[in-house]
Write a protein that binds this DNA or RNA. Sequence first.
DNA 1: GTTGAAAAATTCCGCCG
DNA 2: CGGCGGAATTTTTCAAC
Lengths: 154, 154
Amino acid sequence: MNKVPGIDEIDLKIIGLLAEDAKIPYTEIAKKVYVSGGTVHVRMKKLEEMGVVLGSSLKIDYSKLGYDISAFLGIYLEKSSLYNQVAEQLKNIPEIVSIHYTTGNYNIFVKMYCKDTNHLKDVLHDKVQKIDGIERTETLITLEETLNRTIKFQ
Amino acid sequence: MNKVPGIDEIDLKIIGLLAEDAKIPYTEIAKKVYVSGGTVHVRMKKLEEMGVVLGSSLKIDYSKLGYDISAFLGIYLEKSSLYNQVAEQLKNIPEIVSIHYTTGNYNIFVKMYCKDTNHLKDVLHDKVQKIDGIERTETLITLEETLNRTIKFQ
DNA sequence: GTTGAAAAATTCCGCCG
DNA sequence: CGGCGGAATTTTTCAAC
């Protein structure tokens, strides 16, 4: 399997189980992994201190909250050295949930959620396109999301 | 704000808080939102039944587990009607964590994690490229991920 | 890594506005 | 009916081994 110093099979199993549902009680994890509840607690604390586990979050169906459009944005910069500066501005746009500096076609790649096509148009036109250093953008609208999981380590 | 039937400000605040850290105790959420712990519990149960909240998961630093490469894959299909068929095959590749059917440049857009460039090459060559119906792919390697949050509703 | 016990949170239910 | 409060149950958390 995976060779990472300081992390063993048990740690990976714990992470694997909690990645699917972060609210499973440690006592239940303990049974499945054949250790005591206290050990699961100690392991998780270690993993958090190591920075392997960064926290937990809710899985949310955005469309049920009125955010019907999930889209990716490929951004071309005028100069790739502008990344940090442009990323700072992108952070201020609440519709944007992740920002990636990438090799390949685009310089920056961004994921965002919008309520509808008008909202998307507004964000693009009034917020993204106004940022200095952005040459042009390309929009990929997600029509269907088939999968959304965490990687399997076991 | 947002008009979604059956969901009010309090629900959105609860979701907002738990989206940042799914393990905050309901009693603590209750204090911040000025309702009782029982009410937070009832609200969350309602949101889960409505399918707004799909569950919870761990935020994991994949690089600390030896998965140093996060990449996107833009996939061109021979015919876009092949989506379901190809998506089924992609699901069987454990390195792939999300699959999107998109408008724009690519037909399918995929996110994946690999240990290193060799691992990435293997996945592309031995797994992805072997799938029937895929014309060609384009790889965008993430050099830096600046942001990863859930959308702010409040 | 385990155990056990104190502290805290969850969860459920009857009551009230 | 939605929200509250309290009580039983479960979980978390921590110290000693």
